[in-house]
Design a protein around this nucleic acid. Structure first.
Length: 653
RNA sequence: GGUCCGGUAGCUCAGUUGGAUAGAGCAGCAGCCUUCUAAGCUGCUGGUCAGGCGUUCGAGUCGCCUCCGGAUCACCA
């Protein structure tokens, strides 16, 4: 079985040109494309002959006609042709399509390669911080990572899904400190909160406590100023600003001026409008932040009490994440933790220093000079010898190379880190890592809300669990309104709401080109009509309904002979035929959106076919069998294709 | 300011290495359920593909310029 009719036409056309004009033209000159609907009465595929005019020295119409005639001679699969302007439209013989349907309609795994081979593609995605629950942005990341992994597998690659959990650092310490200071010993069990939510709440509490503490300190400082009389009608204010001892005179002076401005403003308006310089200073010297930093140092020194608290709270978060991941339907083959990998980059830095790729500055910080590559100098070790993000990523990349001996490393990370990954790849290349050439940053765009960006401070963050709840609730409301599943028991109904609600969410996000920023409009996302997941799921359920009836009536459809296709039949068959190539295309572009778009078009094609033609009521047995076979194949393709998006399909809805 | 990404219908998005008359959905309007699931189907309305110049037989697609939006350029992650 060949899925390469397009390549066949192209190669035969090259042969035809050779025969006709004695010239060998490259395949790039002979683009074969699906004939546009207006000319489907002439053919299935089209060739553009304009590039051949130089060698044919004839008019476009004449060139196309000659080529068409030669093609008919060379290609038994070509049945007839038509010419419009410079376009040659070729009709493929019915028996070819008939053979295709016969060969595939009962193959459950049509289009998806279940034989994977070669070195693995390592796909990193999700990569959450453990101080906050997952939100809409993570949802896009997770859905993309999972779907791309599925698509790569279906295209024949071995895939390893990995997650790099950021479980250490100042953010986690903030949650830990706020929890400790609260003194209430709240746990997921005692509060009934999901672990990640609980820890996230303390992170928020830290932030608000920090703001309050800072404002209080500032107000106190401002109000407890001293007055010095300079003369009868002039006086000078002096503020006793804590933590300013180490500053130089200029900086002290700036702070005094900033404090005076703030005070004067307060005097005249009775409102606190704190000057920026002052605010920055008080944040920098915040006792709360100092405590958090002290905690991080204790953590790095393996202080048992700190480690215990850290472990406990991280476990809460993981339990919470697991629930969200499971519900989202994503999983990982290996999970890395930064707490275990953050020191790994240092050896690589040492190696780079020896080989001269990196250099040390006078303050003993380590850098790489990328100015020759149009980038800047980049820090790799701080002057105190500690590592930065980039250092860690060098280490984890090496670790992954050791663990998997991968064909390539794919990073599903937001586009705000484009620069970071450009630098990462470049450094590894300079360090002579051959696999560095196969680092691919799957850079996806931000998810925005109608009000603009999500801001945790403004409470506009869309929580992943809440979002799924809402989608499932909408699916339920919609299903109940339609009233088609009265015979479902409660468990079956719940399962359907889940499948449809999540299908809607996943499709809504995955149908957009990953690279582009996308708008998440809640009103649009709960629409289940048109270009949506539920529409495609519905099409599947509809087909299954027909197939169940056929089975009940004992109708077999393993035999059919076709004299002519209805245009709706051939449109559908050719769409189905293009599924394997679409999987390859989606894999090559790392784009679930290509698959989503294909499935939508297919579902639409099927619905018009379904509407226009009878299936079970068709009297001609051969036609009935063909239509059932096409229906069955469409169901398979929808199921397999949706599975590549991580979307399930219901047998009934 | 440097670098990168984007700008297609009122809104959200498609548009394969340059190919025929730029397509869907939503919204709006008009139809189609005693007939295989109406979460469906059919029709209508809606475009200076941000703007300009260029390359080409042919440009939404490639090049240059301008305008607008976003990201990034930390001893943060």
């Amino acid at each position: 079985m060949t899925f390469m009719i397009v390549q066949l036409i192209s190669s035969k056309a090259i042969e035809a040109v050779q025969n006709l004009f004695g010239v060998s033209v490259p395949a790039s000159q002979l683009a074969v494309q699906r004939t546009i609907p207006s000319f489907r009465n002439q053919g299935d595929f089209s060739l553009v002959v304009f590039p051949l005019l130089k060698v044919s020295r004839k008019s476009p119409e004449e060139t196309a006609r000659l080529l068409g005639e030669e093609l008919l001679r060379l290609m038994p699969e070509a049945e007839s042709f038509g010419v419009v302007k410079g376009y040659l439209n070729v009709r493929i013989v019915k028996s070819f399509w008939e053979g295709f349907v016969k060969d595939t309609y009962s193959a459950q795994s049509f289009g998806v390669d279940n034989q994977t081979s070669g070195k693995p593609v390592v796909v990193e995605y999700s990569s959450p911080n453990t101080n906050k629950p997952l939100h809409l942005g993570h949802v896009r990341n997770n859905l993309l990572g999972y779907s791309v992994s599925q698509i790569l597998k279906a295209s024949g690659k071995n895939v390893a899904k990995v997650n790099l959990v950021n479980d250490r650092g100042i953010h986690i310490c903030k949650s830990m400190l706020a929890w400790k200071l609260s003194g209430v010993n709240e746990t997921p069990q005692s509060s009934g909160k999901k672990g990640d939510k609980l820890v996230g709440d303390y992170y928020v509490k830290f932030s608000s406590d920090l703001v309050k503490e800072t404002n209080d300190r500032i107000k106190e400082t401002i109000l407890n100023h001293e007055k010095h009389s300079l003369s009868d009608d002039q006086e000078m204010l002096s503020f006793n600003i804590p933590g300013s001892d180490g500053l130089n005179d200029y900086e002290k002076n700036e702070l005094q001026k900033s404090a005076e401005n703030t005070f004067n403003n307060y005097e005249s308006t009775r409102e606190w409008k704190i000057d920026g310089i002052l605010k920055e200073h008080f944040l920098k010297t915040s006792p709360l932040l100092q405590q958090a930093r002290a905690m991080l140092l204790k953590w790095e020194a393996r202080d048992p009490e700190t480690l215990q608290l850290w472990n406990m709270m991280n476990e809460w978060v993981y339990a919470g994440f697991d629930v969200t991941y499971k519900r989202l339907g994503v999983d990982f083959d290996k999970i890395y933790h930064e707490s275990q990998t953050y020191l790994f980059g240092k050896e690589i830095v040492e190696e780079g220093l020896k080989s001269g790729v990196l250099f040390r500055k006078d303050d003993s910080s380590v850098w790489i000079d990328l100015t020759a590559d149009g980038l800047d100098e980049k820090l790799l070790l701080r002057s105190d010898g500690t590592s930065v993000y980039m250092t860690q990523d060098l280490g984890t990349a090496q670790l992954r190379a050791n663990d998997f001996d991968p064909e390539s490393l794919v990073y599903v990370v937001g586009n705000e880190q484009n620069y970071h990954f450009e630098v990462l790849k470049l450094i590894l290349q300079k360090l002579g890592r051959p696999w560095a050439d196969h680092i691919f940053h799957l850079s996806y765009g931000m998810v925005e809300l109608p009000e603009g960006k999500m801001k945790s401070r403004e409470g506009t963050v869309v929580d992943a669990d809440d979002l799924m709840d809402e989608m499932v609730a909408t699916a339920r409301a919609m299903t109940e309104e339609l009233g088609k599943i009265e015979d479902f028991d409660s468990e079956e109904a719940q399962e359907l709401y889940r499948i449809v609600g999540l299908g809607a969410l996943k499709y809504f996000i995955l149908k957009v080109d990953p690279r582009k920023n996308m708008l998440f409009n809640p009103a649009d996302s709960i629409d289940f009509n048109g270009n949506t997941g539920p529409f495609i799921q519905y099409t599947y359920a509809r087909i299954k309904s027909v197939l169940r009836k056929a089975e009940a009536e004992n109708i077999r459809f393993d035999h059919f002979e076709v004299n002519d296709f209805h245009s709706k039949e051939s449109d559908l068959i050719i769409s189905l035929y293009e599924f394997p190539a679409t999987v390859k295309q989606a894999a090559a572009d790392y784009s679930p959106a290509i698959m989503a778009s294909y499935l939508y078009d297919l579902a639409r094609d099927y619905n018009t076919f379904y509407h226009e033609l009878s299936i079970l009521k068709e009297e001609n047995e051969s036609k009935k069998a063909l239509r059932l076979a096409i229906s069955s194949l469409t169901a398979t393709v929808i199921k397999n294709g949706m599975q590549l998006l991580g979307i399930e399909v219901p047998e009934r809805m």
